[in-house]
Design a protein around this nucleic acid. Structure first.
Lengths: 315, 315
DNA sequence: TAACGTCACTAGATCGTTTCAGTTCACCGC
DNA sequence: GCGGTGAACTGAAACGATCTAGTGACGTTA
């Protein structure tokens, strides 16, 4: 089955012209009908005929041509420039994707540390409606307000620290990645502020590098210098897992000697020994908000659900 | 600094016309120069003038317009429809990306289980030069030949089984995912064939589901029914890690009671107790081959390096 | 000197949309 | 029977590239 109907350009593509010809109207009219342009008045009969013809022929708008005319395509690009494989990222992407779809747009996720040049070239090719970055949107696009402390990024960061504080830990250290990401500074800042609000001393910051041996060495050095530390809050589950392994390699007991808590639940955290206590974050609503912002739609009163602790054995 | 130079359309975009105007030639000529079209003869002087003007004005080709004219954009889409976070996927993407870049194309990676409808819509918008799928390309696009057994997917699958066989294991089971991926069947087939060639009995197949408790239950059930099994070969490191945890939860010793080997090295495998023995695969060359195939370029004599065992403690 | 070839370029069609600026027609009030 | 109005359309110009089919100008050959 090659061509179901006559009236299809040599290219194999059904175009507006084909639909116009089939329904006996002009291209313009077809366009008006298909996009139901509110500025036009089209008779019900014509509308019907056009719709039917489009259906029959299997017309699908040529996004490239449309984008050329409109100035930008109906695509939104999300850059996820660090391998955040947790629940946050996944749910955020889901929310973003769904909300965009509801407004006729498409999400394109670009993972990995993009070569700037290639990215730029891609953007020129795609001409996306908007380009987002995972980290930026986490903050809902503004400086942290008290609302963020109630229910947002800051609140989730605080949740992690508070959990440890409630278990009686007062000297808490913050395990960070060996690479600087856009979000690392922000996260650390929130954690520090949370500690301050809880009346705790400032969090000592240290890095847990890979591979395994280096991680263990780093943790050993750190604990030697800060023997009063009894708990580690990690930047994410990855770091937490590295720390957990390091502590066990050093012969320390978790959580008795040092408690460890992760951030942004992953499957791997559930498989370690001891299993990792962590923070679960559902960012779907955040994704939806970002989508609306990107499209210039009123975000309404969407509010993200609070994060919650996944209590397991490590803290 | 808004507009560096005069002669830039109201849209803020520098177009071919602008460059043409600036260098005193026609649009066509500019296009010929910039794409150095071999079918045209352009004087050195003109070439120079055009290049310079383009540089000055900061001209960058409008991919959308080009795509409309050419029928497809210079984008290649790669669908990675299952979370394969190992070395294979990463190196494959790197190779693909680099090779495409060398030919003026761009890689767009689409992660996650794409909604078919949205994907189709995206493809209509992007009009990519080619759409690839991670699994397909693993096979270099053809049925497994003896070459694949020498050095390819089949060889890597065999490597895993052979390692266990060399350690004296004869009853080996294959741990699979709970979801069926395009590749699962192929992988299992190769492993079975490898076992046959090594004179081993057929591999018993079983699934290691999540979460942790379910995994342990599955492993327990399986081992009860197949008490002679002494080694588990996993579909990937993820499954291996689940199995490792399950075995430990059941009080079994790894590798003494049951040996475990993963596939496609991840960082997590190095953090477990015992650390996971696995197979490391560098797929960069495979990515380059796929790129050339996609662009219709002769792949030449590129040959992927053989996989290698990463010997750690679990097998 | 007419015919022919090559060089160095240009005009304009083309890709498939969207959308502005009309056009036609029926109907209304006076 | 004339101007005015709104409904229901249509024509054609964009958008920014590529690329075919020419067009002069100059040099070479018979």
């Amino acid at each position: 089955m090659e061509r179901k109907w006559a009236g299809m350009g040599r290219s194999g593509r059904v175009t507006l012209t084909d639909v116009a010809k089939a329904s006996g109207v002009s291209r313009a009219t077809v366009s008006f009908v298909l996009n139901d342009d509110p500025r036009q008045t089209i008779s019900a009969a014509t509308r019907e005929r056009v719709m039917e013809a489009a259906q029959e022929l299997g017309y699908v708008a040529h996004g490239i041509a449309r984008a050329l005319r409109e100035g930008s395509s109906r695509i939104v690009v999300l850059n996820v420039d660090w391998g955040m494989e947790g629940n946050f990222s996944r749910s955020y992407v889901r929310g973003l994707d769904e909300e965009l779809a509801e407004h006729g747009h498409i999400l394109l996720v670009r993972h990995g540390h993009a070569i700037p040049e290639a990215t730029q070239q891609m953007l020129d090719t795609i001409a996306p409606r908007a380009v987002l970055r995972l980290g930026e949107a986490y903050l809902q696009g503004h400086e942290p307000t008290e609302a963020d402390w109630e229910n947002g990024f800051a609140a989730n960061a605080a949740l992690q620290i508070r959990y440890l504080a409630e278990r009686g830990h007062t000297r808490i250290a913050m395990g960070m990645t060996d690479r600087e990401y856009p979000l690392t500074g922000v996260r650390l800042g929130f954690a520090q502020e949370a500690a301050r609000r809880l009346g705790l001393p400032p969090l000592e910051r240290f890095v847990v590098p890979r591979p395994r041996q280096a991680g263990a060495a780093a943790v050993e050095t750190f604990l030697a210098a800060h023997s009063d530390v009894t708990a580690l809050a990690a930047f994410d589950d990855d770091i937490a897992l590295r720390a957990l392994t390091a502590l066990r390699d050093l012969g320390l007991r978790v959580p008795e000697d040092v408690a460890v808590i992760g951030f942004d639940e992953t499957e791997y955290g559930s498989l370690s020994t001891p299993a990792l206590t962590t923070v679960h974050i559902d960012a779907e609503i955040l994704g939806r908000i970002a989508a609306r912002n990107a499209l210039g739609i009123d975000p309404g009163t969407l509010a993200p659900p609070p994060g919650r602790i996944v209590t397991r054995a490590s803290a």
